[in-house]
Design a protein around this nucleic acid. Structure first.
Length: 324
DNA sequence: AACGCGACCTGCGAGC
DNA sequence: TGCTCGCAGGTCGCGT
């Protein structure tokens, strides 16, 4: 469900509610939602209770909250480390259906409420941060903050910390990251022997792009999903990357893409970017660009990578004989 | 290195 | 009405 714009909407919504607040109590209502926390529920809860949220940071679709722990701070000082430097973070991945919601204590539990985090009181702010997840592909876990070789966590809010959550260290920077390097992306792309959409969805090459925005970026760039990456000219790679950046910024401005109540921001509201989609989910409907040029062309749906891909057969021509 | 596939889950709408 | 099927924004790990 959530791709970069949706996760960024959540991050922005969260930051003013949770930064500087202390986690008072954690309730895990479904163990499956913390299965990526290998040391179990007790360890998960123990790491969180008493810690203070320093920030909310994102890379690609991973979101985490570096944690300050006063006791860790004292230990750190004794050990000669800078006091108050986050050693761990609360990591969240929303998977296909995860939600992070800020709720008052009197709001009834959501049907798929998995984890409840009570925060220290603050005037006019909801008490609880709730993790709600229907399909349980997402989850929460505590992870170490480790030094990164590429200069910081990235995301739109550059954290001042030269550390990254360990479980996000294998994720490449995303196209909205000010430190994203097109040259590095293009060099790595040309070395791949694969199709363009597969590459766009590879979070180790470029992060944040999922099935919706891959199809939208390819449509905007007039490129086919199966185009071999090792034949892509620099201008074409710039076009598709620029399109991805544009479409995700547009979606961000619209509050994200929601087809139903599954994707909502931290206040429970849906985004409206689905009205602006040109390819995704539009099977059988006219290609708007072709229609504007007086050509009758209809968006086609095909199975690719065990999921649906939407393309215009006229303006996104399929590669022939691998010759470009 | 790349790819295909299954696993991890619940719920919805279509069709019978 | 109730059943089965296909489908859904993602990631990980296995075998080939």
């Amino acid at each position: 469900m959530p791709e970069l714009p949706e996760v960024e909407v959540v991050r922005r919504g969260l930051v003013s509610w949770v930064r500087g607040r202390t986690i008072e109590r954690v309730e895990v209502l479904d163990q499956r939602s913390i299965r990526r926390h290998a040391l179990g529920t007790e360890d998960f809860v123990g790491n969180l209770e008493g810690a203070t949220v320093a920030d909310v940071v994102r890379r690609g679709k991973f979101l985490w909250m570096p944690l300050l722990d006063t006791s860790v701070g004292r230990d750190a000082a004794a050990a000669g480390r800078p006091a108050g430097r986050p050693q761990v973070a609360l990591m969240a991945h929303l998977g296909m259906s995860g939600q992070l919601l800020m709720q008052d204590r009197n709001v009834p539990d959501e049907k798929h409420l998995k984890v409840r985090i009570r925060l220290s009181p603050r005037d006019g702010m909801p008490e609880q941060l709730r993790f709600v997840d229907q399909r349980i592909f997402g989850g929460l876990f505590v992870t170490a903050m480790v030094p990164t070789d590429d200069g910081g966590p990235g995301g739109l809010a550059e954290s001042p910390l030269p550390l990254i959550a360990e479980e996000a260290a294998h994720i490449a920077r995303d196209p909205l990251d000010p430190a994203f390097s097109f040259d590095l992306f293009y060099r790595r792309l040309r070395k791949r022997k694969t199709g363009l959409k597969r590459a766009l969805l590879d979070q180790g090459l470029v992060s944040g792009i999922g099935n919706i925005y891959a199809d939208e970026a390819l449509w905007r760039a007039r490129l086919h999903y199966a185009r071999p990456t090792d034949t892509l000219r620099r201008t074409e790679a710039e076009r598709v990357l620029g399109s991805a950046r544009e479409v995700m910024l547009d979606a961000l401005a619209a509050g994200g893409t929601s087809f139903d109540s599954l994707y909502v921001n931290v206040n429970g509201a849906s985004g409206y970017f689905d009205r602006s989609l040109n390819a995704y989910g539009r099977e059988g409907q006219p290609c708007k660009r072709c229609a504007a040029a007086g050509i009758h062309a209809f968006i086609r749906r095909e199975q690719f990578m065990n999921r649906s891909s939407y393309t215009c057969p006229v303006c996104q021509t399929r590669p022939r004989n691998g010759r470009w």
